[in-house]
Amino acid sequence: MSESEQPVDLKSYIRLCAVIFLVVLCTTSAMIAASFSDHLGSGWTGRVTVILGIAVINAFLVAGYLMHLLSEKKLVYTVLCFTVFFFIGLMGLTLWAMGNFPVGTINH
């Protein structure tokens, strides 16, 4: 019983969903365009950054609107904040460790 997200009538809700769907279509197209575009340099670094940036926007839309995260309770935010922090720790520290070897290490 989520009092905070009452869909008052179905029609306006369908309209909102249609908008979100269109936006998702646009971001997906933008990702594909970025992937095949010649303007983002020859290497992959810049391209990956742009594409993942768009993916994050896309994810924000899904989490924020479809999962109602924008109007969720503080408790859920707290749990997710810790999770994201630990996820960043896992990936970040592992990457750091894998890039940080004593001078002279040939293979790892």
């Binding site: 810790f82 520290l93 460790a97 940080n100 070897f101 004593p102």
Partner: peptide, 24 residues
């Protein structure tokens, strides 16, 4: 509980870790 998530690599000092990460 919080800190226990960011101490794990002290089991791995012998894997040829760099000084930066070992110090952390």
């Amino acid at each position: 509980g919080f800190l226990s998530f960011i101490v794990w690599a002290h089991h791995m000092y012998l894997t040829g870790m760099g000084q930066g990460i070992a110090t952390f």
